[in-house]
Computed example of a mutant assay.
Amino acid sequence: MPDVVRTRREGAILEVTLDRPKANAIDLKTSRLLGETFQAFRDDAGLRVAIVSTAGEKFFSAGWDLKAAASGDAVDGDYGVGGFGGLQELRDMNKPVIACVNGMAVGGGFELALSCDLIYASEHSSFALPEIKAGTLADAATIKLPKRIPYHVAMDLLLTGRWMGASEAHRWGLVNEVLPADKLETRVWEIARLLAGGPPLVFAAIKEVARKAEAMEFQDAMNWITKRKFRTVDELYASDDNMEGFRAFAEKRDPVWKGR
């Protein structure tokens, strides 16, 4: 039997693959494994980009494992360090994460994709939040989705539980690109390699500022940047990398980012 959570490392890129037939559903144990994996990625200075993928072509992930719940897995149990799916509540995740969605992203599987910074999907992929039909709350999606797509579209998905195809998801800006299934992985790795060659301290600052500024007034957030109150901004402005781009331009060469 394959490992439920597999990793593949190429240079500064880590691919995390969930392989849990038949629907890549996530129980408590799997969520904790994912959390440990993403935490290790976050804390490894040699890794700069993560790809989140799943095995098979029918389901990206069906979300919460209802069979496990029926067998005693508590819905409010210990999901692990990163919350459900290991990623959506992981603190200080200041590295880019790419979702490679090939198949149905349902409920918590949809929320796992929403926890990523970029989403690439195959043409046959689809998205749904059926929790309303089970009389429960799609908690993370209710918080995140109205901030990602127009409010009325997000409410439509949340209130009806209907399916959204990949092309519609792309039209609303939820998905970055839609590709044929046989070209999806190649494109995701192309983007991952592009990001792996970018300035990691700038990426970290972008993610922290974007995340924390959501709860701040615009001018307050700008003042925090100017006064270097964001930890990642302070680290960036004090780094060698902060001047490397200017030096590289003046010397007519490609910048060499060292993350320090």
Rank of each mutant, 00 (worst) to 15 (best):
M1W: 05
P2T: 10
T7Q: 14
T7I: 09
R8M: 01
G11L: 11
G11I: 12
I13G: 04
L14I: 09
V16S: 07
T17D: 06
T17H: 04
A25D: 14
D27Y: 12
T30R: 12
S31K: 11
S31Y: 05
R32G: 10
E36N: 15
T37F: 01
A40T: 08
D44S: 09
G46R: 11
G46L: 11
L47G: 01
L47F: 07
V49D: 06
V49Q: 07
A50V: 09
A55G: 15
G56A: 12
F59S: 05
A62C: 03
K67R: 08
A68F: 03
A70Y: 03
A70L: 08
S71A: 07
G72P: 13
D73R: 13
A74T: 12
D76M: 09
V81C: 07
G83A: 04
G83C: 12
G85F: 04
G86H: 00
G86I: 01
L87W: 00
M93W: 06
K95D: 10
K95I: 11
V101F: 06
V101Q: 06
N102H: 12
M104Q: 11
M104R: 12
G108R: 04
G109K: 09
F110L: 13
A113N: 03
S115F: 05
D117C: 04
S126F: 06
F127M: 04
E131R: 05
T136I: 10
L137P: 09
A141P: 05
T142L: 10
I143F: 14
I143A: 14
R148I: 07
Y151F: 08
H152P: 00
H152K: 12
V153S: 09
M155K: 10
T160D: 02
G161I: 02
M164A: 03
S167R: 14
E177C: 05
E177V: 13
E185T: 08
T186P: 00
R187K: 15
W189G: 10
L194R: 12
A196Q: 01
P199H: 08
P200L: 00
V202H: 14
I206V: 14
I206P: 01
K212M: 04
E214C: 09
F218T: 14
Q219D: 03
N223I: 11
K227S: 15
R231S: 13
R231E: 13
D234K: 15
L236C: 11
A238V: 02
A238C: 08
S239N: 02
K252L: 07
D254P: 02
V256A: 11
V256Y: 08
W257Q: 07
R260H: 13
